[in-house]
Design a protein around this nucleic acid. Structure first.
Length: 307
DNA sequence: TTTGATGT
């Protein structure tokens, strides 16, 4: 088991493995850009960026507005600011070149993952996102016959408060091509279940999910990033996927876990913990900063170790 | 159970 873990970490070594310390990073302020958007189009067009008026420093008030929900989901900061779209229960940044998300952010509580008879996943359809320009929009036809699943980044099972919420997770903006057998339907699914279980331990769980395109050394000894593209729109097939998760306890202390899994069949017996990596490794590989507004003094553990 | 694709 231990050797396996070393192997996974070795795969990541090309992008830098500098330890668990996530402290003194540049102060990246994701809250200073302001864009004004009228409330009407915000309601009629799910997916429109409603950013700008949102600040992670804004205290959460339970007034029920979309803006407040975004500030709650994004409490600890935006990983990046490009092509941000907000939905009723998750927020994402869309990669127009690759036709998949850069990152998807969720705020999850036990109420969000509870069984709810009013919500039926089987009624959901995978739907192209009309809020994306047609040049950059992925279609169901891109995935059809590709051999890859339309894998949720924000998992459907994390959004059971309302039928509308789970339906929005089926927008293709929230999808990336994933190996089905042995990955999306198994190892990755186990990781998603693990995140849901964290809501039993923590009052609030913040989860950021996305793709990675990691370099690999070729036979000529040089490193290259190589990934398949599928369909008429050339949707990128990521080499790996990450999850960075923060659990917020009642006392305000925070625990962080970070995972990277290769987009391939993974043996059934592999524990999810063997895919833990230092968060900084993912940040360097993805070009993102996670939980940048988080107060370091409140960070208790990272990947189970005292921070 | 939850994650999906595919065929009728």
């Amino acid at each position: 088991m231990f050797t396996k873990r070393i192997l996974h970490i070795a795969q990541l070594s090309a992008v830098g493995l500098a330890g668990y310390y996530i402290g003194q990073r540049d102060k990246f302020s994701s809250n200073e850009d302001t864009v004004t958007i009228d409330g009407k189009s915000l309601k009629s067009m799910p997916g429109l960026p409603i950013f700008g008026t949102v600040s992670a420093a804004t205290p959460y008030t339970d007034s029920g507005s979309a803006k407040d929900r975004v500030s709650q989901i994004m409490k600890y900061g935006f990983p990046s600011l490009d092509n941000v779209r907000s939905y009723d229960d998750f927020v994402l940044s869309y990669d127009r070149r690759n036709r998949v998300p850069n990152w998807v952010f969720e705020h999850i509580t036990k109420e969000h993952v509870m069984k709810n008879d009013a919500v039926d996943r089987s009624k959901c359809d995978f739907t192209p996102d009309e809020s994306i320009h047609p040049f950059f929009r992925s279609q169901n036809s891109d995935y059809k016959g590709s051999g890859f699943d339309r894998g949720h980044m924000a998992a459907a099972g994390n959004h059971r408060l309302a039928q509308k919420h789970v339906e929005q997770t089926f927008l293709l903006t929230n999808m990336a091509p994933q190996v089905g057998e042995g990955f999306n339907r198994h190892a990755w699914n186990r990781l998603e279940k693990h995140v849901r279980k964290l809501t039993k331990v923590y009052d609030n769980v913040y989860c950021c999910t996305g793709p990675l395109y990691l370099p690999r050394k070729d036979s000529d000894g040089k490193s290259y990033v190589k990934y398949q593209v599928i369909g008429a729109n050339s949707v990128a097939v990521p080499t790996h996927f990450y999850k960075v998760v923060v659990g917020e306890a009642t006392d305000g202390l925070l625990d962080m876990e970070a995972y990277v899994m290769p987009n391939q069949k993974i043996p059934d017996e592999t524990p999810v913990s063997s895919y833990m990596v230092p968060p900084e490794t993912i940040e360097r590989a993805a070009g993102l900063l996670f939980f940048n507004n988080l107060q370091r003094s409140k960070l208790n553990r990272i990947n189970g170790k005292k921070a």
